[in-house]
C-alpha cells in the first residue's frame, strides 16, 4: 500500500511540476511566487505583527487552501478530462492508493510550501524589523501555525477531492472550490460585522482576556471533525464503477 501510495505521489508531483511546460518553468509560479509573497513581501510589510498577532494564524490556516485549490480540483476531474482515469482505474492500484496518493501529493505541496513560507517569513521579519533582537514565534503560536495549516491543508484536500470526484470538468471543480474558499473567508468576516454590538464587544473581551487560545483550540477541534468527515465521504464516494460511468 505504501509503495503504491508513493507511486501515485511520484506521478502527481511530476505532473504538478510539469504543468507549466517544464520543471524550470513550473518552479516559478508553483514555488517561487508563493514563497516570495508569503515569505518576503507580506512579512516585510506587516512587520513584527506577522509573528505576534493572532490574526496571522488565520493567514496560515487559509493559505494552504489557496495554494492547493487548483491542484486538488485537477486531481480526478483532470484525469477524466484528459482520458487517463479509466486506464488508471484498470490498473492493479488499490482504490485507497489512488485516492490518498493524490491527496497526499497535494497536501505535501500545500503544507510544505506553507511551512517554508513560515520559516522565510520569520527570517524576513528578523532581517527587516529585528532591530538586532532575535524575534521568534511563541510556542503556542508555533503549535497554532502547525495545527491550523495542517488542518487547512486537509480541509482543502478533502473538500477538493470530493468536488473533483463529482465534477465533469476541471474548470467546474475549480469554480466550486474557489467559491467555497471565498465563502470561508468572507462569511466569518462579514458575519462578525453583522453581529449585535453587544455580542461583538463580548467576543472581543473574551479574546482579550486570554480566550484566543480557547478559540483556536475550538477551531482546531472543529476543523479536525470536518476534515475527517470529508475524507470519509471521499473514500465512500471513490467507487471505480461510478467513476467510470460519470
Amino acid at each position: 500500500m505504501i509503495t503504491d501510495l508513493l507511486t501515485m505521489m511520484w506521478k502527481e508531483w511530476k505532473e504538478i511540476l510539469l504543468q507549466h511546460g517544464g520543471i524550470r518553468s513550473g518552479i516559478l509560479p508553483m514555488v517561487i511566487v508563493p514563497l516570495g509573497l508569503l515569505g518576503i513581501m507580506l512579512p516585510w510589510q506587516v512587520g513584527r505583527a506577522w509573528i505576534e498577532s493572532p490574526l496571522s494564524l488565520a493567514v496560515w490556516a487559509w493559505m494552504p487552501l489557496m495554494l492547493m485549490a487548483s491542484l486538488i480540483a485537477d486531481s480526478f476531474a483532470g484525469e477524466r478530462e484528459r482520458n487517463t482515469l479509466e486506464t488508471l482505474l484498470a490498473s492493479r492500484l488499490p482504490d485507497r492508493a489512488i485516492l490518498f496518493g493524490k491527496v497526499c501529493a497535494v497536501v505535501s505541496y500545500g503544507w510544505g510550501l506553507t511551512m517554508l513560507g513560515v520559516l522565510m517569513g520569520l527570517l524576513t521579519v528578523n532581517l527587516v524589523h529585528g532591530q538586532e533582537q532575535l524575534l521568534l514565534y511563541s510556542w503556542k503560536f508555533t503549535l497554532g501555525i502547525l495545527a491550523l495549516s495542517w488542518l487547512g491543508s486537509w480541509l482543502a484536500a478533502g473538500a477538493g477531492v470530493l468536488v473533483s470526484l463529482r465534477a465533469a470538468t476541471v474548470r467546474q471543480a475549480q469554480q466550486v472550490l474557489m467559491l467555497a474558499i471565498m465563502l470561508l473567508l468572507f462569511v466569518p468576516v462579514y458575519g462578525f460585522q453583522l453581529l449585535p454590538d453587544e455580542l461583538r464587544a463580548q467576543i472581543a473581551r473574551t479574546l482579550a482576556a486570554g480566550g484566543a487560545t480557547r478559540l483556536v483550540l475550538l477551531i482546531i477541534v472543529a476543523l479536525t471533525v470536518v476534515d475527517i468527515s470529508l475524507i470519509i465521504a471521499a473514500t465512500a464516494r471513490f467507487r471505480r464503477a461510478r467513476l467510470i460511468l460519470d
Binding site: 509503495t3 507511486t7 511530476k14 510539469l18 482520458n83 479509466e86 484498470a90
Partner: peptide, 27 residues
Amino acid sequence: CGVLLEHAGLYERLSAEDNLELYGRIW
C-alpha cells in the same frame, strides 16, 4: 491484465519513458 482502452490513457505532460516508468512502478 494489461489494457489499451478506448483512449490511450497516456499522461501527455510526461515523457514516453516516464509514462512507462509510472506503470512499471504501479506493477
